[in-house]
Structure formats: C-alpha cells, structure tokens
C-alpha cells in the first residue's frame, strides 16, 4: 500500500487507539473459531456475534487512528488491520491465545469483556471527543457481551464438578496472562496527561480487580485472583510493545493477512 499515506503510528494517540483496536480484532478473530463448531447452535450464534463485534469495533477504532489522513478509509483500515508486520500489533498476548476448550474461551471472554467495559467507561471521559463518543456507543453494545459471559460463568460454576474444574483450569490459564492487558503502551503517560486516555492501563487494573475479584471469590476461585502487585508472566508480557508469541506470529497473523498481503492494492 505504497500510495497510502498512513498517519504517524508512533504517537501516544495512535498507540493507545491501536491497543484498543488490536485487542478487539485479535480477540474477535479468535472468537470466530467457534462458528459452525460451538457446543450448541444457540452458542454458535452468540459467539459469532461476539466475533463480528470484535472485527467491527476494530474497524471503528482504526478509523479514529486514521483521523482523516487518507481518502480511502476502507483501504486505510485494512492497511492497519491486515497490513502491519506482527511486531506493530499492540494487543495483549492473552487475546492471541487459541480458543483451547470452551471453558478457557468462556473464562477469557469473561475477563476480556469486563476489562473492555471498564476501559470504555473510562474512555467516555476522554478529551478527544471522537474517542469519547465511540466509547459510549461501544459500551452500550458491550452489555450483551457482559451478560453473555456472566451467564456461562454462573452456570459453569454450578454445573457440577467437571464443569467447575474446567472453568477453574480456564481461569488458571487466563488470569495471570490477563495482567498483560494492563501494561501501558509506549508514551502512555503522555496520553494520560493529554486526557486522551483518562485512566492509564495500570489504574484500570485496580478497577478491574475491584470488579472481578468479588465474583471470582463467590465462585470459589479466590485463590486465582491475581495479587495487586503480581507481575505479568514473562510469556504474556509486552504485547502492548509489539512482542507476540508464536500463537500470533506463526498462527494468527500469517493466516489472517496472507491474502491481503499477496495482492497489494487489490480491491475485494
């Protein structure tokens, strides 16, 4: 896309918005795995909507990254969503993990959507009016995701030993890695000072813990609640700075971007 002049992606604004957009795109991409193979037809339909929302929301955030710098907005969105090298993606590593089993998928869904709702709620106060407006819109749509995630959380907890054990395994895998969601993007302090990101990722972690911990405790998962000062495990760290695992670099990224990359400038 040589003729497409993308904006400077290294600014704090771009980095913050790319983190949000990439979280949505990559977790949506992974959610689409369940299409046609979910444990029930009803769940199949539900997860497809969650996948579509991820892709759709990523599109909307990429449009804000572009900030009117390109004439062809769709081409600009695709250059961001599909045209970057793996190390330019800013999603947290927990988003790129494969769906594993349905219990892991549900545990991650629960964690990610509670996190996203909290981040969006804080972004509603952004000094960037477009960011604030989009956050309010998406927060509204997130309600379904939260209700859907909580629905299965409750039923797996009460669903007998095997379901509860599997959910516990899912949370055991997801919770430590979820801490990578709260790592700051490059120059995040600047974005916070500007008011673009009213609450930095580190403080979002406190809010997320406050909201998630009581529910995890009630579900008998108190021992899995991350400590306030727990470090991000090495294997899930620095996603926000572009470090990714083979789950992204070898699995998601080549498949997701190959067709786009093989036909530079083509229209589809």
């Amino acid at each position: 896309m040589a003729d497409l002049a993308l904006p400077d992606l290294s600014t704090p604004r771009s980095q913050v918005l790319l983190a949000i957009a990439d979280d949505a795109l990559i977790s949506g991409h992974r959610a689409s795995h369940w299409t046609g193979v979910a444990p029930s037809l009803e769940e199949d339909l539900a997860f497809s909507t969650i996948a579509q929302a991820g892709i759709n929301h990523a599109d909307l955030w990429y449009q804000l990254v572009l900030d009117g710098t390109v004439d062809d907005v769709s081409a600009g969105v695709d250059a961001l969503g599909l045209g970057r090298e793996p190390e330019a993606y800013r999603h947290a590593i927990v988003c790129e993990r494969p769906p594993r089993d349905f219990a892991y998928t549900l545990a991650r869904h629960w964690v990610l959507d509670r996190f996203e709702a909290i981040r969006l709620a804080s972004l509603a106060a952004s000094t960037d009016p477009e960011v604030a407006a989009l956050s309010v819109k998406l927060l509204h749509e997130h309600r379904y995701h939260l209700e859907h995630a909580q629905l299965w959380f409750d039923r797996l907890v009460r669903g007998g030993d095997e379901a509860a054990d599997r959910l516990r395994d899912g949370f055991t895998q997801v919770l430590p890695e979820a801490l990578g969601l709260f790592e700051p993007v490059e120059d995040e302090d600047q974005a916070v000072a500007d008011g673009l990101l009213p609450v930095g990722h580190a403080r979002l972690r406190e809010r997320w813990l406050e909201s998630a911990a009581p529910l995890l405790e009630q579900a008998g998962l108190a021992d899995l609640v991350p400590a306030v000062d727990a470090a991000v495990p090495d294997e899930a760290a620095f996603g926000r700075r572009g470090c990714h695992t083979d789950d992204f670099v070898v699995d998601v990224w080549p498949e997701m971007t190959r067709l786009y990359r093989e036909h530079p400038g083509a229209r589809w």
Binding site: K137, L138, H140, E141
Partner: peptide, 12 residues
C-alpha cells in the same frame, strides 16, 4: 433496551 443498537450493523 438490550435490543437497542448504537453501532451500525447494516453489513448484516
């Protein structure tokens, strides 16, 4: 209100 939409879903 769970059916209210604020995001464009015309692609569907």
């Amino acid at each position: 209100t769970l059916l209210e939409r604020q995001v464009d879903i015309s692609y569907r």
